[in-house]
Design a protein around this nucleic acid. Structure first.
Lengths: 318, 318
DNA sequence: CCATCTTATGCTCATGGAGAGTATAAATGG
DNA sequence: CCATTTATACTCTCCATGAGCATAAGATGG
């Protein structure tokens, strides 16, 4: 940045960069959260921003709709990174990557495109605590983190490192905090447990389960998941991922899929109903096991009615 | 964005833009929230991003420290905009503006720089509700908004417009929501009550009090204020704005200054203390009216101890 | 010294939301 | 009929939060 501040009305020459958009596109199908990927699931969809569009969001929407044939519901900017050329070479072209979170419903991907939907827990298996904490956290991740903590230079640093591990991964009887997705990824990265972190060095590092991605795409995905997990607690965004009509259990399963943890059923219903987020359609769910459930639809009116308070999660501690 | 998705490993030529950084730099002095401005208070500090820095944040920090001679505490990215040339001319250079929120303590600005601190309520007088809702909201803003609502084409639209006004400005006995800073600004913009909104047309529009800024800088500031008002409720970021030692009342005044509304004193103390965010220094405040207060300092340890829950605001409804 | 003002600090009370559990209803397949 | 599965209705307890009362500790002016 210039030493002397000034209005940015005269862009300095020699400062040219390229702007890329990267999208974390989320859908939920049958209790499985999906993200749109390309290149065989090894990258998030991305491409250069073209200034034929009025704004970044417009560009993203247009592109996604061309891809999926479906309008993109909720869109939110995630983060902007500056990359200084792939090889670290100061002469290589610089780029700015602007990432977005988008919510939609899974659907056929347009013909001739290489995009498809992948389960997001393929990339972050340690994030799914719906059936309790995955065994490999205690069996595999925790010991490796402990080794990493022990490798610090002083006893104080060792303690601090381990405390950080325990907090982010809910170890030592701490509670699991589902929102710390990015912190967990970054911790694993620092501990060299993420393949992307081994900068083309030849040596093999002990790595953790989970599919890697190109460049920093998995970090971007982590950012998106974290944002979404936080958001569903105070904004009714889950409905963007639901079909027009749904049962309360389906809604619950979607929330649980995103949060990666279970919710107390009765309290979940109480919350949804007392906030008047949904209304009955009058119909009942067909093709069901057990007692048939009422069908509901989202009351779009709530978006206008109030500065919407949200859908906090009635978590269960079991 | 390209129709065919691909890894962004080959930036397309002809897509060059310039990247600018814009900073919302906040400090609080004697219960007055300030922002750093340039050009006589008509613009936020900004400048081109230079790729000599490793990252955007590094660039921002370096620049701010050169400006103020003080390290920048908390830094957070706000939003990235794409501007298509000043005049709307498709041939003019495109730029991407990346805005940041930074917290620091007010201090002397380095010699020879045109930057200085301005009170943020100079730009958003309607946001300060510490002495109750400002009279001109009911006297001046509300009627103008009502007129704007009435100008909608259908009765339904008129009602929706007014409902939106009432929600964002807390009219019709609704509660004031201090976080809706951006929504309020955008509403006033749509209603042509913001000077920046009158696109160099000659006609005078009825405008609302508050100092305007260059380009979209006031919108960026609104984004920053909104983000900060939300953040202080769940992250202990206020302490970045406090001196090393402070009384609980000083802390409370700072929170109130940011939130633009009053807080219940006893409950505020209860909250701060039970969360163990501070510790006594042992000393007492000097130069005081009334009973002397204990001095406290921030317990930096809490940042490590937990996935910090925050400093919710014990609002008073009076 | 006393009255009064100002701020600090301790404590109680009522309300409501959240976590948790119990109980009953309505469907299906043996 | 019974076991199983899901839906739905209540109840209970705990605790955070908004609110207010009461007292303490300093200064100041008569």
């Amino acid at each position: 940045m210039a030493r002397s501040p000034q209005k940015s009305s005269a862009p300095a020459s020699g400062n040219a960069v390229t702007a890329d958009l990267v999208a974390v596109l989320v859908a939920v199908t049958d209790g499985a959260p999906k993200i749109m990927t390309i290149a065989g699931g090894s990258a998030l969809p991305s491409g250069p921003f073209e200034f034929t569009h009025r704004s970044l969001q417009t560009a993203l929407r247009a592109w996604v709709e061309a891809q999926t044939g479906h309008p993109l519901g909720y869109v939110e900017q995630l983060y902007t990174f500056a990359d200084r050329g792939r090889s670290g070479d100061a002469k290589s072209p610089h780029s700015v990557s602007i990432s977005y979170l988008g919510l939609t419903r899974e659907d056929k991907v347009g013909e001739g495109f290489e995009a498809h939907w992948s389960g997001w827990y393929d990339y972050f298996p340690w994030e799914d605590h719906r059936a309790g904490a995955p065994g490999f956290i205690a069996r595999s991740i925790a010991p490796k983190l402990k080794a990493w903590a022990k490798a610090a230079s002083s006893p104080t640093l060792q303690r601090e490192r381990w405390q950080r591990c325990a907090i982010t991964f809910g170890l030592d009887d701490r509670d699991w905090n589902e929102e710390l997705v990015l912190q967990r990824y970054e911790l694993l990265w620092e501990a060299s447990l993420i393949p992307e972190a081994n900068h083309s060095r030849g040596r093999e590092a002990p790595v953790v389960p989970g599919k890697p991605m190109t460049a920093d795409h998995r970090r971007i995905l982590a950012t998106g998941i974290a944002r979404l997990r936080a958001k569903i607690k105070y904004r009714p965004v889950v409905f963007e991922l639901m079909p027009a009509e749904f049962t309360l259990l389906q809604l619950q399963r979607s929330v649980e899929a995103l949060a990666g943890r279970l919710v107390h059923k009765q309290n979940f219903r109480r919350l949804i109903e007392q906030q008047e987020l949904v209304e009955e359609t009058g119909a009942m769910a067909a093709d069901t096991v057990g007692r048939p459930a009422k069908l509901f639809r989202f009351r779009h009116a709530v978006l206008a009615e109030r500065a919407v308070a949200g859908t906090k999660l009635p978590l269960s501690r079991t």
